[in-house]
């Protein structure tokens, strides 16, 4: 592969959307109201749309005949590069919203920076995605406020979710070797630079939602290196089921 760093860099971005989209897809038909169900599915659809653009591009770079679906569905566990945050389960709606918000806040800042990428395909994907993700972030931050500053029960549930998910936020700002090289070349986003703004913003929303900002200094990492939580295996079991059971067929 001529540009393995770029290829890996794209996968790092796309896998986040892929796994989060998959998680949201689980909820379709099971949301707390019809309206919310439709909204979560819209987010899932946006994410899968982004995934397809990224993987179609990755497929061109790979030049080995693999399609977007091969890249999405036929890698091994250790080859998925998504952050641990997005693979966390839909324990309840507070977890779904907490995961969404903690990711959206990052995702939006990331895409705004990616719009300036020297790689024109990536900047074009970012231009399109930034509008979608602005809406995601609005949706999830509004819900953080509703649940945080709603009833006692919802406040407690929302706080629990934030406390549990907080440990996965630091990883968003880690860099792999490919990330560093891409950032130096002006193609990738220098994510450590986003960190302060991210926590400032997240803290602002949590405070408005009357939620406590977790004080834990212990963070989990590894997703970007392919060392995941136990959840990912199950996600992949479903995601890959058809491609693995019926190899080399068209659908």
């Amino acid at each position: 592969m001529k540009n393995e760093n770029l290829y890996n860099y794209i996968l790092g971005i796309a896998d986040n959307s892929l796994i989060l989209g998959q998680r949201l897809g689980e909820l379709c038909g099971h949301g707390p109201s019809l309206e919310t169900d439709i909204a979560c599915t819209n987010i899932s659809l946006d994410l899968f749309g982004q995934v397809r653009s990224y993987f179609q591009y990755a497929s061109k770079i790979a030049e080995d005949g693999r399609t977007e679906d091969d890249i999405a569905m036929l890698r091994k566990e250790r080859d998925y590069k998504n952050v641990l945050l997005v693979e966390q389960p839909n324990t309840n709606f507070a977890y779904t919203i907490g995961r969404q918000f903690l990711f959206d806040a990052y995702h939006l800042m990331f895409l705004k920076a990616l719009q300036k990428s020297a790689d024109l395909t990536l900047s074009a994907i970012a231009d399109k995605s930034v509008k979608e993700v602005s809406y995601h972030e609005r949706f999830s931050s509004d819900w953080i406020k509703r649940l945080g500053d709603g009833t006692d029960e919802s406040h407690e549930k929302m706080q629990d979710a934030i406390n549990d998910l907080w440990t996965y936020t630091d990883e968003l700002f880690h860099q792999t070797e490919a990330d560093k090289i891409m950032a130096t070349e002006g193609v990738g986003v220098d994510v450590p630079e986003l960190k302060t703004a991210y926590y400032n913003y997240v803290n602002e929303i949590l405070t408005e939602a009357t939620l406590e900002i977790p004080e834990s200094k212990y963070f989990q990492k590894g997703g970007k290196q392919g060392i995941h939580t136990e959840h990912l295996g199950y996600i992949l079991a479903e995601l890959q089921y058809m491609q693995r059971t019926y190899p080399n067929m068209e659908w």
Partner: peptide
């Protein structure tokens, strides 16, 4: 809805998601 997570390709997955969403 029970096949959304198992759809065999990304194209099929978005079509199915959009369809089930329409039903909602």
């Amino acid at each position: 809805g029970n096949w959304i997570t198992r759809a065999p390709s990304l194209r099929r997955k978005v079509a199915l998601l959009a369809k089930v969403q329409d039903e909602a």
